[in-house]
Every structure is written in structure tokens, then in C-alpha cells.
Amino acid sequence: MSLADDLLAQAKTLATIDSGIPSQANLRRSISSSYYALFHLLIAEAASRFIPASPPGLRARVSRSFGHGEMKQICSRFSSKRIPDEISLLLHSRISLELLSITETFVDLQEDRHLADYDVGLSFERGDALLSIGQARRAFTQWNLIRDTDEATVFLAALAFGARWAK
């Protein structure tokens, strides 16, 4: 099982492990895991597409260069109505609904992750964690539908180069 799949399964386990009132710690870690599942899915896809498997460890090292903030900014650009030229010129058609949804989900889940990890004034319900899981799971399914397309490659390249992409 990949790390991304493992994290998604962990999110479900944490959200449903308590039979009575769920522990806030379990719900918070569940929400966080849903985000990290999508985060690691996209990084693994980019690394395997652009970085050779040899020498061993290279992909893992490059994977560490991905930043949450930069990935969020790239996702925001892909999800806006007016796609910036540096992206749209490489695409032969409009961005698919699947990719739009994936980029929105990434931004959404990252915000939820920040709240779950850092805002101790909030109280979460099981439904919040299940919604995060549902969003992440759907993003996985949508990714499988588009992962072999040009738009997916452009998207992954943009994620990999982050802020330098717009130069």
C-alpha cells in the first residue's frame, strides 16, 4: 500500500475508532491525515513522473522539496476562472472538472488541516472528519481518471516548480 493510501485508511480508522463520543485528538488527526493523503499522492505522482528511480533515494530526497504553501498557490491558480497564461498555453483544452475539483479539494483540506492541527478553540464532530475523508477519497478517484493526461503532467510540473513556475 502506498503512503497516500495508507494515510487515507488511517484517516478512516481514526474517525470511526471511538464507539461513543469521538475523541477530539482522533478527529483532528483524522482530518490531518486526509490532507496528507492527498499531499503525498500528488508528490509521489510528480516524483515518479519527473525523477528517475536511480540512484536510490533520489526521488525521496526531491519529494522533500515540495512545500505546502507553494502547492496551495498552484492549486489556487488552476482552480480560478482565468487560468494564467503560463498554464493555459500548455493545455489544449479547458481544465477538466476532475482537475478543478482536485485543486479545490487540496486547498480545502489544507485549511481544514491547519484548523485541526493548530486551532485548539475549535471542537470537531465525526461528520467533519468523514467529510474530509470523502473529499480526499473523491480526489483520489478523480486523479486516477486524469493521471495519464497532459493536463495532469502540466499540473504536476507546476507543483514541482512552485513559485518558479510563473517566471
Binding site: 482565468r82 461528520g127 467529510l131
Partner: peptide
């Protein structure tokens, strides 16, 4: 739970479609 999640995902999708057309500079 599954149906409620589906309802919320549908709501988010529909609302975001409408808001995207407004070209708001806000996520």
C-alpha cells in the same frame, strides 16, 4: 454518514461552480 457526505460534496461543487463564474478574487 455516506449520504450526508455526498450531500455536502454536491453542495460544495454546485456552489463553487456558481462562484467561479463571478471570478471572485477569494477562495
Amino acid at each position: 454518514d455516506e449520504d450526508q457526505v455526498e450531500d455536502l460534496l454536491t453542495l460544495k461543487d454546485a456552489a463553487r461552480r456558481k462562484l467561479r463564474d463571478l471570478e471572485l478574487p477569494l477562495f
